[in-house]
Design a protein around this nucleic acid. Sequence first.
DNA 1: AAAATGATTTAGGTAAGACTAAATTTTACA
DNA 2: TGTAAAATTTAGTCTTACCTAAATCATTTT
Lengths: 220, 220
Amino acid sequence: MKPSTSIQDYLKRIYELTENGQPASTNDLARELNVKPASVTGMIQKLAAEKPALVEYQKHQGVTLTAAGKRAALEVIRHHRLIETWLVQTLGYSWDEVHEEAERLEHVISEDFERRIAAALGHPLRDPHGELIPTADLKMPLDESTPLSALRKNQSGKILCIKSADADLLRHLNELGLTPNTSIEVVDYSPFDHNLTVTAGKRTSVLGLNITGRIFVEKK
Amino acid sequence: MKPSTSIQDYLKRIYELTENGQPASTNDLARELNVKPASVTGMIQKLAAEKPALVEYQKHQGVTLTAAGKRAALEVIRHHRLIETWLVQTLGYSWDEVHEEAERLEHVISEDFERRIAAALGHPLRDPHGELIPTADLKMPLDESTPLSALRKNQSGKILCIKSADADLLRHLNELGLTPNTSIEVVDYSPFDHNLTVTAGKRTSVLGLNITGRIFVEKK
DNA sequence: AAAATGATTTAGGTAAGACTAAATTTTACA
DNA sequence: TGTAAAATTTAGTCTTACCTAAATCATTTT
Ligand SMILES: [Mn+2]
Ligand SMILES: [Mn+2]
Ligand SMILES: [Mn+2]
Ligand SMILES: [Mn+2]
């Protein structure tokens, strides 16, 4: 049985929050899902009681995904990222407009629709933000990127991915020329505020940690 | 506030059932919506109590749409038919595959998405089944078609529209060459069973009322 | 006109998924 | 090591949209 829209969103957020290896906390999930912590506890208990269980859960210890939960999460993430790519390629959406639309479409498309857009797009590896698209058999490709915030003076790389759904930030980065596939060089580092001065194309920008932590690069 | 998926489906069905000028009955709605009559009564009472009311309702007398209800219904129908057209044009769906997918997508696309596919398709007037697409300002164009069942021996016309969501029937008609824009001639009429013998392209078929009542033509 | 039939409505429930308020557990730190 | 703060869970409600069973209404048939 296909999980409900709500459940799909919970699993997706749990996947994202546990990518660092730590269990996802009730509060973090509540914030990401725009829901109260009490509601999260209720849903988590339900997901843990499903057969097969979709999450591993111990009171007060946070949640992680089981194999079944991870599969369901990757299914939604694949939908989301293929749809974003599709909207940009065929309907002229810009990268700051696609997320909201994909957030709703991801839950209602058929597996047939998924196959058709994947084929029409030539089985893309990344979405418009550079995020990796899970494969058709629901494996997440290995992510070999480094956060820009880890680079120091005179190091350089190529932008692979912007990890943000904030439309304003995405528009801002677009204006600074900081988009996937752009080559970038760090020309200065300020140790106290962690600001990086970077050059991309002809432009030079000073970026705070809130930005450099969301830009992921392939180190040269 | 945008109506829920359920409400949108109710309004759409009420629109279809009242196209003949008669109010829609509780039982007919229940059948179309795959829901029990008691549930229909409950929902109808809710829709009549909305401000502004979406339906006009008197106990035991059936239900009709108010202006607000009709607008909401045409919005969903426009989505549905544009999506069907788009799936056929850009993803190679066949006309018997699109309905199910559109039935889910129609409720979640944005007005922006609607505008984009309408523009990308060149503002089409009809969907893949030949059904008229409501305009952007939510008017249903005048339907000047005649049911094939009203034609008699030696009369001819051009197929405008197939009014059916039955995938098997659509595939069958496809094989008989009975698709929109095809010219058709009635070569025989059997008064007792209302069968029509028709020629379309090189093929001749004998069609019962269940089919001829769903094929709509422009009389020559 | 009464009775039977069919359509519709009412009454009372269920399930999902949210919420608030109160209780409890964990963690932080004085 | 005890307390205060923060995080989490529990308990009890609410809304939406469905269900079944029983009651009522409307239409037909006798
Ligand atoms: Mn996104
Ligand atoms: Mn979503
Ligand atoms: Mn359709
Ligand atoms: Mn629908």
